[in-house]
Amino acid sequence: MLTKLSNKVISDIALLVIRIILGVIFIAHGYPKIFVFGIPGFAKFLGGLGVPLPGLFAVIVSLVEFVGGIVLILGIFSRWVGLLLAINMIVATLLVKVKVGLIAPMDKPGVGAELDLALFACALAILVFGPGSISVELGIFKKEIS
């Protein structure tokens, strides 16, 4: 089956899958920052980590994750969103996860850096390769929006 599909088609499908999964994950992470804990609650968390200007960065991170996830699924401004999400994940890894290590300990599941690094790698792939032709950018506009 795969041998009958061109490398371009396979690449476009792979980029679509990465965009959808990455977008859903970031929407799920951004949603509570905006609508559950709220920006003030997230700002307090960031302040506790020693982040300067926690109120400003709470807004930026929340919007990058939530709106960026939506935009990524659609395939609009994909390289820019990929860059912002990659930066987001590097900062999150350095601020929170590097102290825990790569793999979460058995008594603290889900806190290791492995997920953050995988999300970084996916965001980096979108940054480098773009959205693929199954996107609003290339499907409708026939060019990448920069």
Rank of each mutant, 00 (worst) to 15 (best):
L63N: 10
L53E: 09
L56M: 13
A92W: 10
V71G: 00
L49D: 07
V51E: 07
I76Q: 01
G75M: 05
S133M: 09
I76K: 00
I76H: 01
L83Y: 02
I134S: 02
L83V: 12
I87E: 05
L63H: 04
L49I: 08
V100H: 07
V100S: 07
E65K: 04
I76C: 03
V96A: 13
T93Q: 08
L85T: 04
S78C: 03
R79V: 04
A92T: 14
F120W: 14
K99T: 11
L119I: 14
D116P: 10
I134R: 03
R79C: 03
S135N: 07
S78N: 02
T93F: 14
G69P: 02
L117S: 11
I76G: 01
V59F: 10
V71Q: 01
F129A: 09
G110P: 10
G82E: 07
V64Y: 01
I76M: 12
P109I: 09
L119V: 11
I70V: 15
E65L: 14
G112Q: 04
A58T: 06
F66P: 04
K97M: 12
L95N: 12
V59L: 12
A104V: 04
A121D: 09
G110H: 12
G132M: 09
V64H: 01
I103L: 14
G69E: 05
V61G: 06
G132K: 04
M89A: 11
D116Y: 08
L95A: 13
I90S: 06
S78R: 02
L117H: 13
S133F: 09
M106W: 01
A121C: 13
I73K: 02
I134C: 03
L56A: 12
P105V: 08
D107A: 14
N88I: 00
I103D: 01
E114N: 12
A125S: 14
A86N: 02
T93S: 13
P52S: 13
A125Y: 03
P105C: 07
V61F: 11
R79L: 05
A92Q: 09
L53D: 03
L49E: 11
S78T: 14
M106Q: 12
G82D: 08
